[in-house]
Computed example of a mutant assay.
Amino acid sequence: MQELEQRLDSLEPPKPTTILDSPFPFEKGADQHFPTDDLPIPVAIKEGTKIPFNVIVREPDYIRPIYEEQWHSTYWGGRWSYVPSRIHYAQHRIFPFYAIGISAELNFQQNVGIAFPTEINETDLDLYIVVFQTNITDVYTKGNQVVVVGTPKRNGVDVISIKTGDINPSNIEKYLLVQLATDGAELDYSLIEYEPPDYWLQQKQRNEHEKSKKK
């Protein structure tokens, strides 16, 4: 009985409720970090900068599953089985991500259902972007906007990386608005904090400083 109760807890909220925003506690209140100077996509493309991207995965025939085995409530204690989060992921096509923690990387790849290699560079951080059912052709940036341009498809998945050094946010206190667009129209969007190119170097220096204080 206890096991069944634990599985139920991993599947749904404790009480009937309506969730309009993200089901993840760390994303609550993200609206206050929404960039205030975002432009219409055609303007952002025209006035922005076209930046290079690296294709890590391109599987044009990939069929996005409606359910995967790791989302079952018996898998890893139901770590990825929470129904509101499953609906949240299913509603979106574009998912930006930093590989800045083993646990975070595991959670992200298990949630989106796509595994891909990542790299660590102390002074040249990558922002990874997973896009379903779209063939990515170009990436532009303007202020806090990152516009990923592509052609919609019925199937397929692309995983790309861009350098955060190529992004020049107008306000680092606000999130990056990562938009998936076609023909000047937004198909989907996601928000993510901006991390500087030397993120890992800063972490290393911070750790060394903490160690020196303990001596």
Rank of each mutant, 00 (worst) to 15 (best):
E3W: 04
E3M: 14
L4E: 02
L4S: 08
E5V: 12
P13K: 05
P13L: 14
K15S: 11
T17L: 12
D21N: 09
P23V: 05
P25N: 11
F26K: 11
E27C: 03
A30M: 06
A30T: 04
T36D: 14
D38V: 13
P40E: 06
P40F: 01
K46W: 14
T49Q: 07
K50F: 05
P52E: 00
P65W: 13
I66H: 06
Q70L: 08
Q70C: 06
W71N: 13
G78M: 08
R79N: 03
P84R: 01
R86H: 10
I87P: 14
Y89L: 15
H92K: 14
I94Q: 00
F95T: 09
A99C: 06
S103R: 09
F108N: 11
I114K: 07
E119L: 04
I120E: 00
N121G: 11
L125N: 15
L125V: 08
D126K: 15
Y128S: 11
V131N: 03
V131Y: 01
N135A: 10
V139Q: 01
K142D: 08
N144F: 00
V146Q: 04
V148D: 00
P152L: 07
K153D: 01
K153R: 07
K153S: 10
R154N: 01
N155A: 13
N155R: 01
V157D: 08
S161T: 13
K163S: 02
T164G: 00
D166W: 00
P169Y: 02
Y175M: 05
L176I: 11
V178P: 04
V178F: 02
Q179D: 08
A181D: 06
Y189Q: 02
L191R: 08
W200F: 11
Q202C: 08
Q202H: 03
H209P: 03
E210K: 02
K211A: 09
K213L: 15
